[in-house]
Amino acid sequence: MMESLNNQITTVEAINSALADAMTIEDGIILLGEDVADPEEGGVAGVTRGLSTRFGDSRVRSTPISEQAIVGAGIGAAMAGMRPVVEIMMMNFATVAMDMIVNHAAKLRFMSGGQTQVPLTIRMATGAGLSTAGQHADYLEAWFAHTAGIKVVTYSSPAEAYGLLQSCIFDNDPCIFIENFIAYAQKGTAPEKNSRIPLGKANIVRAGKHVTVVSYGPQVGIALAVAEKLSAEGVELEVVDLRTISPWDKATVLESVKRTGRLVINHEAVKAFGVGAEIAAVVQQELWGDLLAPVRRVGAPSCPVPYSRPLELAFMTSEADLENEIRLALK
């Protein structure tokens, strides 16, 4: 619907179309979230713009500021057979709905012995770089990945966002779908209508033989930029986009690292106790004899996201940080 002529679309358009196309074929999809309906301008970033007009305000509802009730309603409706997509405006606001997500959405299938299920998608945006400081910019994927019973998914381009979100919506488990605020405006090739990208499968976005870089979200773009730069020096990076953070695609990562012998994991989240730690632990255990260097990680320091511009820039991971870790891995 929102595709432009040259077949390039923004991430906002991709997510909007993924929702619209899914809603067209499945009546059980409802959208709940603060400001998501058109009288409220279809969300603060306009991601759901046009959907309440198109699908009606019974299916697309602006909610009160009540994250616990929003996620709870999503869970209940999912248990009753719907496929709700709820929007938590910013990832940090999921903190006030953690009971619903961690104690309920994630565990109901198991605790009910498989009698109930929660096919719920929880969209949430985040990311440092906008001077929004400590309560609006955290990457908290490790918290969710640490909880069994929930899938954690993110994307590195508009088309990936489309295909992965569609898969989350039609998946029978609760999925956390992480969006990046800055990358909302990023453009890319439009996906094919109703194309889905399977969950749990990583994507080798660049083949290379010297170092494997595992990443996800906008950090994949950083990895690709560093790969271009190092290629000029004869160093070829293999860049793996995890796509699904949990459960992660061990087979693809292990196969790649077995070939390259070196691994650097790159994420925006705080490094300590992060997703990179889990991957590093598994890789060193499985490939101990094949590794040519210790597994290295790039992530933010153990610090709340700071406001002041120079502090925020120092806090955020950069191409230079990744390049540095790669050079150390090559030593």
Partner: peptide, 26 residues
């Protein structure tokens, strides 16, 4: 007030009794 760490959404100045500015509704 906060050495630039908190920013406009998180001003704190205990000397004048401004104990908390939160960015989280409620």
């Amino acid at each position: 007030t906060c050495k630039g760490k908190g920013g406009p959404m998180h001003i704190t100045h205990p000397e004048t009794g401004c104990m908390l500015t939160t960015g989280i509704v409620g």
